Simulated assay, not measured.
Amino acid sequence: MFQATLHIYIQAISLLIAIFLYRRIKSTSLVYFIPFLSITVLVEIIGYWCIVKGIKNYWIYNIFTTLEFCFYSYIFYQNLRKKLFKQIVAWFVPLYTIAVAANLIFLQGTQSFHTYTFLLGSFFIVVFCCFFFFETIQPETISLKLSQQPFFWVCTGLLVYYLGSVIINALFEYLRSNDLQQEGKKIYGTINRSLILILYTSFSVSFFLCRNNRKTYSSPS
């Protein structure tokens, strides 16, 4: 049971750290992680309850992951500087929402997880991370060591998590197609928990770094 709910504890700890460090992050766009992480923990609790009760929870995660990609896109929009990059991020949100709706209606349906559009969203989050890293290596934008920039840790966590998600989802599909679904579930669970630990630890590090680096962030708007 503990392993099945470990990701919820990890997310809850990250939320508590964000709340505890509210004064550090309140003037940055990271302040929006407090309501986002609150919703994340709530969704995961409901999702786990559905599993225990034998209720399908695909619809919950179809909605939540769509909103999750939109949230991360907003955070990138707030922290990217180049106009072209910001425009790409801005256009992604409505187009992605339409793609998810079309996928659920015409392709995968509402009774399964939207793997096609999840992979699409993962791809674009990785692209947005590359946008940020590209900006940080430009001479005119370097003001701090990369490891001292709070959003660097957010990007690092997202990059590792979504690259890893693409790989483990492809691996799980391969194992399932070769009648190795039970082994696939074990491997998927182990890797996924590791990725979640990396992601939310990265978020927590970024919260701690905000105190002395507020100027590296866009203010909430």
Rank of each mutant, 00 (worst) to 15 (best):
M1Q: 11
Q3I: 14
L6T: 09
I8R: 09
I8H: 08
Q11H: 02
Q11M: 11
A12L: 15
S14T: 11
S14L: 04
I17C: 07
T28P: 01
S29G: 13
S29R: 00
L30F: 10
L30Y: 02
Y32G: 01
F33D: 00
I34R: 03
I34H: 02
I34N: 01
S38Y: 01
V41L: 02
I45Y: 06
G47R: 06
G47Y: 05
Y48S: 05
C50M: 12
I51D: 13
K56S: 13
Y58L: 00
I60N: 04
Y61C: 04
I63M: 09
F64N: 01
T65W: 12
T65Y: 15
T66F: 00
E68V: 01
C70H: 00
L80E: 04
L80D: 03
R81I: 15
K82Y: 11
K86T: 05
K86R: 15
Q87P: 00
A90R: 10
P94E: 04
L95H: 02
Y96H: 10
A101S: 11
A101F: 12
L104A: 09
F106H: 09
F106E: 08
L107K: 10
S112Q: 14
T115I: 15
L120A: 14
G121T: 07
F131D: 04
F132I: 07
F133N: 02
F133I: 08
Q138L: 15
P139W: 11
P139Y: 12
T141N: 15
T141F: 14
I142F: 11
S143N: 15
S143A: 12
S143F: 13
L144H: 13
L146M: 12
P150H: 10
F151A: 03
T156M: 15
L159Y: 14
L159V: 11
V160Y: 09
Y162D: 05
Y162H: 15
G164D: 08
I167A: 15
I167K: 07
I167D: 06
I168M: 11
I168Q: 12
L171I: 11
Y174E: 07
R176Q: 12
S177N: 14
D179T: 05
D179K: 09
Q181I: 13
K186N: 10
Y188D: 09
G189H: 04
G189L: 09
G189E: 07
I191W: 04
I191G: 04
S194A: 15
L195I: 04
L197E: 06
I198C: 06
L199T: 00
L199Y: 02
S202Q: 02
S206R: 05
F208N: 00
F208C: 06
C210K: 01
Y217P: 00
Y217S: 14
S218N: 11
P220I: 05
S221R: 12
